[in-house]
Amino acid sequence: MRFGNRVAVAAAAGALVIAVGLGSGAIRTEAAMGAKDVIETRQKAMKELGGHMKAINGFVEKGEGDAAMVAEHATAIAQTSMKIPELFPEGTSLADSHGVKTAAKPEIWSDRPGFEKAAMSLGTEAEELAEAAKGGDKQAIAAAFGELGKNGCGGCHSNFRQKQD
């Protein structure tokens, strides 16, 4: 049975090599797919944030909709803000090689506390706008909207985003 044993060992070893080879290949593609998916997901999330801002601006500039609508959009922004840190996992910066276009600066990871603080301030500013909207005072809403754009969106974009085009 010595020969049979050897065959079995060789077959097992061969299978292992193939499995490892396939496996690591699979892992590699998964990582690349992962980066692409994550980047696309967060870009979609950012677009949605822009959509909320656009709707709120309609009320502030042209009196479209009402304060309750503003509060809804502001609350949605606050909720998305909490998911921002997890949308920026390691390996998804503009300097990483994943073949996807992104504006995420490496500073997001080298200054993680700063980044998370900036994401949190988006939530805080959005909640303040939601509060102002519940109060119903148009001037207070406009002021809170300005702060949200400047400090909430802009606070993060100033330090952590570098547009590629």
Partner: peptide, 15 residues
Amino acid sequence: TGLLPDFDAVGGAMG
């Protein structure tokens, strides 16, 4: 507000 016409927010030095 730093908000562009597509409601993206300016970043970098303009922020």
